[in-house]
Nucleic acid binder design. Structure first.
Lengths: 148, 148
DNA sequence: TTGACTACCATAAAATCCCATGTTATCCCA
DNA sequence: TGGGATAACATGGGATTTTATGGTAGTCAA
């Protein structure tokens, strides 16, 4: 699982250390890392290849001409299988750098099955927004399911 | 799996480099590359021989005398098994060059099980269209429910 | 013999690998 | 419990390899 938040530096070659705990999670699962444009936020989403495979399989099951299939294909086009260097760093592709407005700092935010990479300023926006909702509407109602 | 997008040059002999990651995917699968006319868009589709076989089988399931089967067969007739040169380039057949309106630039767009080759201008059209759908309709339902 | 096609060589730019180093976290023993 | 030793982590820089792409020579067929 991807959990916790950390702030890492992006160097001039667009390299950034993936937090060790995220790396260990991937290693344990023996999964390659996929980075892609979030469809909901101006940030990068990271996940496992297996999880991405689920979206790809879904494409074949949808009507090929449907909007959903079209969007999913575009999502694949902006997805990258990412390799680690020996120190646990990755290179963030240009397309993703500019999509998420990244320059020299990245905020890694684990959300369970995947994680987000934000620019510091955009992360702050989202964080403040969540605090505001919390203050105005109170905590969300959550119903827990048992594990299978 | 074919992922990511890249822009490569087509030279006077209609040679173009297939992105290294696509090549490696084919090598790993030990699959030859097939190029053919997309059934949905004015672009070339590239895929493995095995997947092409699945298309052909799907056609056989249709009423053999139907218009659909007729059209699909005509499209499939313009399919080519493509060989790489030692540097990972292929020659794009004339028929496909003109079908996709290709001249001196090609955009390779990985969509999972296969990939598209667009002319730059047509690629831009499709990209803009996807942004419009995303803005108007939001992301596919599939993306929002993260787990099965 | 010409023209088209293929196989191979050359090169610049870009991506990748690997070593070095400072910093933070963890461990272990007094 | 404190503090030094050790390991893990994040980051910088340079060497090496890969990739994309231009060009040339060889081959086959009309």
């Amino acid at each position: 699982m991807f959990l916790s938040t950390s702030h890492n530096k992006i160097d001039l070659k667009c390299r950034v250390s993936i937090p060790a705990s995220f790396r260990m999670n991937l290693e344990k699962l023996k999964e390659p890392l996929i980075l892609f444009k979030s469809l909901q936020f101006p940030c990068i989403e990271g996940t496992t290849l297996t999880r991405m495979q689920r979206y790809i399989n879904a494409i074949d099951e949808l009507d090929a001409l449907s909007d959903d299939a079209f969007l999913l294909r575009m999502m694949m086009a902006d997805s990258f299988e990412i390799k680690f260097d020996i120190n646990g760093r990755v290179v963030i592709p240009d397309i993703l750098m500019s999509f998420a407005n990244l320059t020299n700092k990245a905020v890694f935010m684990g959300i369970g099955e995947s994680f987000y990479i934000w620019s510091p300023s955009e992360y702050e926006n989202q964080y403040n927004k969540s605090q505001k909702i919390l203050n105005e509407k109170g905590p969300p109602k959550l119903i827990l399911k048992k594990n299978e």
